[in-house]
Design a protein around this nucleic acid. Structure first.
Length: 839
RNA sequence: GCGGACGUGGCGAAACCGGUAGACGCGGCAGACUUAAAAUCUGCUUCCCCUGGAGUGCGGGUUCGAGUCCCGCCGUCCGCACCA
């Protein structure tokens, strides 16, 4: 019998057996309780990295564990396969994006399979295949029919060299990230999804997501950004370009009597109208546009304004005029693009007022007596009562807000309203490698939906990337079609959908994928919502918000009765690694360095290496460890075990050579511990208790995704089994140990299970039963403290009464010595825990 | 500025409702086995002025008792940010 577990042979053997038996196929018709475990599907970049391995290992442990506890588990895998890198590869290497993507998928699928994940590969999907994106087109048309899709002119970042729209993140210092060309602002007609229609429910829905990290909920709430306040009109003292008033929004209408100016954004229509006659203002506006919106610039940018010479009339006093400025800190994109300035109670307004010598009037004070106290360098934003405000005097802020809103509505110059930070979702991308938007443009009839029977609108294969721009746009035939309405020649929409649309419903398609519809409602509803979703925090806002929106939109149009797609969300930490730098400052890869006599040196030269911070694995810092060779060397289980050990899953996991060695040692140790014995007899009650406590504890830890704690408990049990003398209990413990490690290190578990003659596959085994009687101790260790400091420990039967415990503690040699015959002032007894003697 | 985490040995970390701080792993040290090495096993491993004392970022507080609760600081990381 081999004394070593050989993953190179065993891993593939068990993977093949699971595959042939269809062990991890989810059965829609199963009567068992359903459990949907999902990890964020990967982009097929070409290789898997440690982050994937960690992510999918966590999900896998949970999925396998749920199977063991009697659930029918859906644990699928697929590919977020559209996107720019494929087009970049096409431009750089001349490969077709489809060929490149499909080859990458094949490579990555093989790499994932080597890790032995309990995935239902029969449901595998790739978003770049017409079977998927065609159904997405159908859903898009459903939303379109329901009025949740519209077309609007919108400013975009246009790269004039690549002839394409760039996302904000792709514009670096005003230049395209690839071409380096100065980016232009262009107005393009684009398709939008009405996510703002759902702002309120998306925000309120967050409160039901109690199994989401607080951080993610806070980020989404922030992003949606609800502000309640008053929208009201300031009449102008002169009509300019046909404009006789401006509309402003304020969350602090209670401070309206403290206003000392009004300001509009540089892009505001009135600014444009005024600039037409005033070159100086035109110059100022141009200047504002030059200032970027990057965080650093915003922080240092001075608050600047241009006095238009116009005045607005205070709505509560026709004789009160406030100067109107164009200001660089007012954003056209938020609220109405115009504000009232209340310097006493807003820091930004105060800075501005000081600069332009505008009045500062306190209208809120902590107490009425402080009404006359001047404002110095700091605006007062604290609580208090309204002062210097006529009929509002003496009211609290909330009452005053309600009062002003009521009056504005009564008098017709304003109304209470809610303003959202959230914008509608622009989904048009001027790219080839994405889902074609199923619309046909007709000069006579306007944009027409593609008739259902013509779906999917399939991407043409014969495209070239040797010229910049969108290949769909210049394809000789593809876009030329007849209008479905009038039959005259018309053009296909050549924009494709944002890839975030693809990932907004893939979890529904996993649950049900009929050929003729996006999904079967009844089947999908059996599985959804996803019980546990696992992925990186980088998707905390966009992907998770879009998926929530899409699901709610489908619910609103009656396609599925699920409001929130993901009941539980877990955001895992990154896999990190030390960084190494040579003397000349260049980065060194972990393969180039070696530890020698307690120092890190360059492998070839022996030169001393500077060991840098532990950081996220990245190509630029050369600290990437590729999972492939590691799996070759140590096998899938050692890698999986490493991913689960030590660091709590939400925190970063530092990869180390020593760590993977340790995991390898454990896998081998487990193999030795579980070697079938001679069939010893006899009971070992201590070990029995340890075993049952471990089984119960590991189950709790896995449910809570506290894998590091489960690992620690398993080590303790393994240590105890090794130390125990041969007995029937010891054999039973070893046997049970195999089952509880099975979700984490399934290959060695199967092999060990087969070796001891276990019935069936461990992949189909049940989680061991726990005998509650063995979870309670009959003896407990009592801590004996004096003045809160530990002085002694003693053993007592469980449940001993207070008086007996006190007597026992006072009889302890150490205590007798320390008391020196004096009487304790007080004795506190916590049964089964401790005795504290106060002297 | 707003929001969210976090701070415990040389390192990754445990510690349930306030009740024996440092479980478990890594690394290190010593030893066993071996001609030797690997592998494996055993013991030790928070610090110090070591019959004792100190100790969970710092300073206070509540309590018989605080890593845990309260107040005030310091520091690190992440997200958003001229949001009216």
């Amino acid at each position: 019998m081999s004394s070593r577990f050989n993953p190179q042979a065993a891993d593939a053997r068990w993977q093949k057996i699971w595959d042939e038996r269809g062990s991890f196929r989810a059965d829609d018709a199963s009567p068992k309780p359903k459990s949907y475990v999902l990890e964020m599907f990967p982009y097929p970049s070409g290789r898997i990295h440690m982050g994937h391995v960690r992510n999918y290992t966590m999900g896998d442990v949970l999925a396998r564990f749920r199977r063991m506890t009697g659930h029918e588990v859906l644990h699928p895998m697929g590919w977020d396969a559209f996107g720019m890198p494929a087009e970049n590869a096409a431009m750089e290497k001349g490969v077709h994006p489809g060929d490149w993507t499909r080859a990458n998928i094949a490579t990555m699928r093989a790499a994932l399979k080597r890790l032995g994940f309990a995935l239902d590969w029969s449901r595998e999907l790739a978003t770049c295949e017409p079977e998927y994106y065609g159904q997405e087109q159908a859903l898009f048309l459903d939303l379109h029919a329901a009025g949740l899709v519209y077309r609007k002119e919108s400013a975009v970042n246009w790269d004039p060299v690549d002839h394409t729209v760039l996302a904000n993140e792709q514009v670096i210092d005003g230049r395209g990230w690839r071409s380096g060309a100065l980016v232009e602002r262009r107005k393009l007609s684009q398709w939008f999804l009405k996510i703002t229609d759902f702002a309120e429910e998306l925000l309120d829905g967050l409160e039901t997501l109690d199994q989401w990290p607080e951080k993610v909920r806070a980020m989404q709430a922030n992003w949606i950004g609800r502000s309640r306040g008053l929208r009201f009109r300031f009449a102008l003292d002169h009509v300019v370009g046909g404009i006789d008033h401006i509309e402003v929004f304020s969350t602090r209408p209670d401070t309206i009597f403290g206003a000392s100016f009004a300001a509009v954004a540089a892009d505001h229509p009135i600014a444009a109208a005024l600039a037409a006659k005033d070159p100086a203002l035109g110059e100022f506006i141009a200047d504002c546009r030059r200032t970027g919106t990057a965080a650093a610039e915003v922080e240092t940018a001075e608050k600047k304004g241009f006095d238009t010479g116009l005045h607005v009339i205070h709505p509560l006093d026709p004789n009160w005029r406030l100067p109107l400025f164009v200001a660089n800190f007012v954003l056209m994109e938020y609220g109405t693009g115009a504000v009232m300035g209340v310097p006493a109670h807003d820091q930004r307004d105060l800075d501005f007022a000081r600069k332009y010598a505008l009045p500062v009037t306190r209208v809120v004070a902590p107490t009425v007596e402080q009404a006359g106290e001047p404002i110095h360098d700091e605006a007062y934003t604290g609580p208090g009562v309204i002062v210097n405000s006529h009929f509002l005097d003496g009211l609290g802020a909330e009452e005053a807000k309600a009062g002003i809103i009521g009056r504005a509505e009564e008098e017709g110059w304003g109304e209470g309203t809610t303003v959202w930070r959230l914008r509608d979702w622009g989904v048009s991308r001027q790219r080839y490698w994405g889902t074609p938007i199923p619309i046909i443009h007709c000069d006579a009839c306007g944009p027409q939906p593609v008739p259902r029977e013509q779906l999917p609108v399939v991407l043409p294969e014969d495209v070239s990337f040797d010229v910049p721009g969108n290949p769909l746009d210049r394809h000789p035939t593809w876009k030329h079609v007849d209008c479905p309405n009038c039959g005259k020649p018309a053009r296909r929409e050549t924009d494709t959908l944002d890839t975030f649309v693809d990932s907004s419903w893939y979890f529904i398609r996993f649950a049900s994928q009929p050929g003729d519809r996006p999904f079967d409602r009844a089947v999908a509803e059996q599985w959804l919502p996803v019980g546990q979703y696992i992925g990186g925090v980088e998707h905390a806002i966009l992907h998770l918000l879009y998926a929530r929106f899409w699901t709610r939109a489908l619910k609103r149009i009656g396609r599925i009765d699920v409001a929130e797609p993901f009941t539980g969300l877990f955001t895992q930490g990154m896999v990190t690694h030390e960084t190494y730098k040579a003397a000349d400052g260049s980065w060194l890869s972990p393969e180039d360095v070696v530890s020698r006599d307690g120092q890190i040196v360059v492998l070839d030269t022996g030169a001393l290496v500077n060991v840098g911070r532990v950081e996220k694995m990245s190509k630029s810092k050369k600290n990437v460890v590729d999972p492939g060779p590691i799996v070759d060397q140590y096998g899938a289980d050692a890698v999986r075990w490493f991913m689960l050990s030590d660091s709590p899953p939400e925190r970063d996991l530092p990869w180390s050579e020593a760590g993977i060695e340790g995991s390898w040692r454990f896998v081998q140790r487990l193999w030795r511990i579980t070697e079938p014995g001679e069939g010893a007899s006899g009971e070992d009650r201590e070990l029995d208790k340890r075993l049952h406590r471990t089984v119960a504890g590991v189950a709790t830890d896995i449910e809570a995704l506290s894998f590091n704690k489960a690992v620690a408990k398993i080590y303790e049990l393994a240590n105890a089994i090794e130390k125990a003398k041969p007995s029937a209990s010891r054999d039973a413990a070893a046997r049970t140990l195999i089952r509880i490690v099975a979700p984490m290190i399934p290959h060695v578990a199967e092999e060990a299970w087969a070796r001891i003659g276990g019935e069936g596959l461990i992949a189909d085994a049940a989680w061991p039963e726990v005998d509650p009687a063995l979870l309670v101790d009959d003896e407990v260790t009592i801590a004996v403290q004096m003045n809160g400091k530990l002085r002694d420990t003693l053993t007592a039967p469980k449940g001993m009464d207070k008086a007996a415990l006190e007597a026992l503690a006072l009889g302890s040699d150490r205590i007798v010595r320390l008391l020196e015959g004096k009487e304790p002032r007080k004795v506190i007894v916590v049964p089964d825990r401790l005795v504290n003697i106060v002297a």
